[in-house]
Design a binder for these strands. Sequence first.
DNA 1: ACCTGAACACCGTTCAAGT
DNA 2: ACCTGAACACCGTTCAAGT
Lengths: 194, 194
Amino acid sequence: MSLSSERIVRAAQDLLTDYGLHDVTMRRLASELGVRPGALYYHVPHKQELLRRVAHQLLAPLQNTDAGPFELMQQFRDLVLPLRDGGDLLLIAYGLDQRIPPVPALEASLRIHGLDDKQARQRSAVIMRFALGAVAAEQNIALLATAEQPSSFETASLQRSSAQVSSAEASSALTTQSADLYAQGLRSLLAHRN
Amino acid sequence: MSLSSERIVRAAQDLLTDYGLHDVTMRRLASELGVRPGALYYHVPHKQELLRRVAHQLLAPLQNTDAGPFELMQQFRDLVLPLRDGGDLLLIAYGLDQRIPPVPALEASLRIHGLDDKQARQRSAVIMRFALGAVAAEQNIALLATAEQPSSFETASLQRSSAQVSSAEASSALTTQSADLYAQGLRSLLAHRN
DNA sequence: ACCTGAACACCGTTCAAGT
DNA sequence: ACCTGAACACCGTTCAAGT
């Protein structure tokens, strides 16, 4: 079975969901597909375009939906959060293409809720920035907290054991709290008085 | 003059402001300091901690200020935006340490404006997520737009010239528009009714 | 105590040459 | 048309050995 951009994008998405963005490298991708790194460049111009395509495929479910703005952005979070560093990917993809899903659907649902074209565009841009920041921040916190860096060079290793004992409850408490913060931000940004 | 973590952090900040995060590598840093890469690891445990320290130094001006929440976050944007990819750095730093400036000052000024402790913590977390997302998105748009990727593999190169002609006005229009979006988001998130 | 030399295990990308 | 081999110019990190 010969190579194709479709197969490459699919393999990249698998790597992303299974191992995280850090492991989506052209070389790793090549070996996963049983091919030499150079071969990928016959089908894909460079890594950035590949990532943009992965992001697009990932967010496709948010393209044709008639969900309200709040539900839509909740779905966005649910879709991106499980990808260990999906936030970073989406930030890149959004930089490359500010009309990735759920942007068009979000604008449409804002217009239905009574905003004119310009207002809908602006509000959706503000909401996307918040959502991207919230997801990326959440994921970085989860990722970098597990790495367990002391906060300064000379931090004593004394409080460590107690910190580790409560790490399970602490992280689950953080997770539910993050969901609340996200919902709270969305509510503020969707309030009628602005 | 021998090495020290202070000198390394300063050199890293210079590299960041002059060339961007992409060029802040341990090897580049070493050659800038006239030393071998391995030498850095005698003074700094790893790159991530180094970046955290750079971020801290960068945001130090936002530590002891009695500015209101809106002004504070405007200063945050003004400080981070000029660093070509300061948003990515701050996302990492915030992941490592959610109490980097301007968080404490922001919470304090929210309490002065009538929020209780818990409300102030939550609101500040929401605002920081928005600010981080907004700055990172803005910078990625600027960075990746200049790279001038066609939006699909087979995009014709016909519309290019006209796009390039108007790139100057377009990007300056985008810049001022981004400032508006940022202010708009802040206003919504600081509104009293949420 | 502080640094070098040298290695380990990686990156993205290009491109002549093969089929 | 599609892919390999091999290179170019890089990464972060470790660690014996030197001073």
